Amino acid sequence: MTDRVNVDENGIWLTDSGRRFGYPWSEVRGAGISVLLLPPDAKRLITVEVDHVSGDFLSITDGLEGFKEAVEALVARSGGEPPNLATLSPEDTVSIALVGESPSA
């Protein structure tokens, strides 16, 4: 099965080799978007780290199916506007403030 990220009314979920895992909204504290330039040819990699109440985190990369839609959904939950992923640079840090919510919120 294709690696995929999905954001729904219950939380944020990854599917990897048919296994689904992630965090419900009540356990999510925030997220951050960053850009890395990978050697040797400075290939861009965009990542989102979703912070869990335990201090753990879920790392999501732009190679996953549904990445752009997941970023848009995360930012929408915070009440903000999604950044233009194509123009982000390594110097840009995007913080997404999320307060844990119950699944019925």
Rank of each mutant, 00 (worst) to 15 (best):
G11K: 02
F57Q: 12
V94A: 05
D8H: 04
G30Y: 06
V53R: 12
L14D: 14
E69W: 05
D56L: 14
L58K: 07
T93P: 03
G55F: 06
S78N: 02
A70L: 13
L88A: 10
G100R: 02
L98I: 14
L85T: 07
G63N: 14
L88Y: 03
E65F: 15
L37I: 03
S59N: 08
V94D: 03
D41A: 13
P90Q: 05
P39E: 08
I60S: 05
D92A: 12
S95T: 00
E69Q: 13
S104M: 05
F57R: 09
M1W: 07
V75K: 02
K43I: 07
M1E: 13
N84F: 01
A86Y: 01
I12V: 15
G18F: 14
V5F: 01
G32D: 04
L64S: 10
A42I: 01
S26M: 11
G80A: 06
L98G: 06
G55V: 03
A42V: 04
T47H: 06
E65H: 15
L58P: 08
L58G: 06
G22Y: 12
A70F: 10
S17A: 14
P39Y: 03
L98F: 04
F57C: 13
V28D: 02
L64R: 12
G18R: 13
F21K: 11
P39V: 07
A73T: 07
S26G: 10
E49V: 13
P39R: 10
G100K: 01
L58R: 08
M1L: 14
G80Y: 00
L98E: 04
A97M: 07
A73I: 07
S26N: 09
L85C: 09
L74Q: 04
S102I: 07
G80N: 05
I12Q: 00
I12N: 01
A76C: 05
R4C: 15
A31I: 08
I12G: 02
V35A: 09
S102Q: 12
S17N: 14
I12F: 03
V48R: 00
F67A: 14
E81F: 09
V94R: 01
G22D: 12
V71P: 00
V53G: 06
E72M: 08
T47R: 15
I60L: 10
N10G: 12
R77Y: 04
V71W: 00
P82I: 02
D56I: 11
S95D: 02
T93F: 12
R19H: 10
T2Q: 15
T47Q: 14
L38E: 07
G80E: 04
L36W: 12
F57T: 08
V94E: 03
D62T: 06
D51H: 05
P24T: 12
S104A: 09
A86P: 00
E81Q: 09
G80V: 00
L85I: 04
E27V: 06
G11V: 01
D16K: 15
E65G: 11
E81M: 07
K43V: 10
T2E: 15
T2P: 15
E69P: 02
E101C: 12
V94P: 06
F67H: 14
S26C: 06
T93N: 08
G55S: 06
Y23R: 10
V50G: 01
V28E: 02
A86G: 01
G63K: 13
L85F: 05
I33S: 00
E81C: 03
E49N: 12
V94K: 02
